[in-house]
Design a protein around this nucleic acid. Sequence first.
DNA 1: CTCATTCATTTGAGCGTTCCAACCCGTCGC
DNA 2: GCGACGGGTTGGAACGCTCAAATGAATGAG
Lengths: 354, 354
Amino acid sequence: MDGRPTLETVAQRAAVSRQTVSNVLNSPHLVRQETLERVRAVIDEVGYRPHGAARQLRTRRSRVIGLRLERTVDGINGAVLDRFLHALTEQAQLRGYRVMLFTAHDDAAEIGQYGELLDVLELDAFVLTSTHSGDPRTAWLCEHDVPFVTFGRPWDPPGTDGQPDHPWVDVDGAAGTRAAVEHLQDAGHTEIAFVGWPAGSGVGDDRRAGWLRAMRAAGVPQHRLDALDVATEDGIAEGAVAARRLLEHVRPTAFVCASDSLALGVLATLRSADGDLIASGPAQAAVVGFDDTPVARAVGLSSVAQPLTEAAGRALDLLLQQLSGSSGAPTRDHHVLLAPSLVVRESSASAPPT
Amino acid sequence: MDGRPTLETVAQRAAVSRQTVSNVLNSPHLVRQETLERVRAVIDEVGYRPHGAARQLRTRRSRVIGLRLERTVDGINGAVLDRFLHALTEQAQLRGYRVMLFTAHDDAAEIGQYGELLDVLELDAFVLTSTHSGDPRTAWLCEHDVPFVTFGRPWDPPGTDGQPDHPWVDVDGAAGTRAAVEHLQDAGHTEIAFVGWPAGSGVGDDRRAGWLRAMRAAGVPQHRLDALDVATEDGIAEGAVAARRLLEHVRPTAFVCASDSLALGVLATLRSADGDLIASGPAQAAVVGFDDTPVARAVGLSSVAQPLTEAAGRALDLLLQQLSGSSGAPTRDHHVLLAPSLVVRESSASAPPT
DNA sequence: CTCATTCATTTGAGCGTTCCAACCCGTCGC
DNA sequence: GCGACGGGTTGGAACGCTCAAATGAATGAG
């Protein structure tokens, strides 16, 4: 009677069979009300909890999902994944699932890990981050009928190079930059520059597109757009350089950036011209960043915030949908595009000089 | 013959019993050389991998360790845990273990999770972060004989309030700040301020102690030390405020900070006085931060780097040592204090004005 | 009154592994 | 020539659970 209680322990004390106890937990509708209550009372009394490995051995389900933890490349934007991971863990827990981590140095190694994790631990599904063009991982997972969802749209045109359609969740970057531009326009700005990444990255192009659309909608001519649009690698120093160049030649009154790193560089340039880095009065020009990292908050930088908790929740919903086996669901529902929200702080408070 | 191969599959093809195949994998010394080779060949041929859940059901070992993922409070210092987590996952993987995440809103909830994870998934051990004074978690784990290790020393005096002795790994913060001070002294600085946290946090006090020791060793009188020592909450803005005050009244030529956040604030204040935030010429005074976060690298801030990969590796070694059951090991070996290293960048390049 | 039908519950088997006791066979000591 | 020994191998049982099929007890239709 000591040691962990098992189904048998509960069954005996409730004077029923193992299977009935099992039904109480998994298919309560099969059990008579009276029995249900009696068994449940015993379960609570002895503090019974089903043994995961035993259950898994029988059902071939682990109720665990896998996620590759990549090396933190950039600490500022890495914070996004960090927060997504937290949200994912929390949301999974709410749904009775757990998150298991693994690492890999490249896509091939990651695929190797899939194989091992599926064979040995029977993970139920995977969440993929940092999808990129020509990603071999999604193809492999589809081919092996492994449920998964990506956080980030597939950036290849559908059907390209055998890239399959698959469930994904993403944040609408274009909507974010568009909102940033409109916010600045409302404050009277018309000369709004975009400091983004070189063309070619899906995420970067998306964010640029939002700025472009909003600027065109306001009737800004193409030659002016060309001047206001800057592409540079990510980083604080890079943002600062871009800002100096723009201020010198193009003279924008506001900046929308593809990342908080870039925005931070821009902001530093503006504020050091005022001799005061830490938020105080309105600066020479307005700045909006992207991702609303904790640093943005610390220095009073307006930024576009991604709804990471919701993204994690929706990602899990997509997974559970696949796991429940209704494979006939329409493909449209497998794609979730969430709208980000603009967090306004001091950095975008300044109106354009009249 | 289709479907996953099992022990039976391999046994039949190698014309031995299940048990012999099992022995080949777990106790090769029991098996005759010839048989060993034959069985191994078959294992490779059919791509056999032992099934985790079945093994766990029998051995009561999951080869999984748990870690609570806390909400990222401060994005800058949160990056430390982020990198530690990556290292831990990688090191665990190398040793044949996996890392499972969970979340909890407070210590009590975390303890509740321990119970569930132990009962349901039979996690082998836990890694605890953010230990604090009067931590109820370590007591619970000890009481229930659960192997664990903390990343961070217990800050209570041993024996206080029933706090048990337990294995831990930590980085010697005092050695880090001492190294920073000595580096500055070598450059000719004598007026070196410390911008730290309010007394009471173990980590913060430790870092202050290193600065204090090195300053005393250089013969700085107590009244001067009192003036050079500032305590403030963590944050960029807070660091900036502290720097302004110090520069105005105490006029230090160098700053050692308890975190990169604080250092960033100090640096911003110094550089904005020069009108140039992004690393360029030597500034008005030298600054050294702590944790070597990616932001530090981005802005050229010297900082004390924690050996996180080594910390993760040592933590796992301590765990495996407990798991292998040699419980009679001396307590001394259960405590690992690692030395951090100073990363010198532009921010500490300036010599004091003569 | 009998037989099919439904509902509630039980029984036996099996998931893939390792533990345990038994077994076989060759060697050694007496 | 017989028992003791030990390296190498084997078969049965068990870990805790759920599946599939069987059982028993009521209910209703013919």
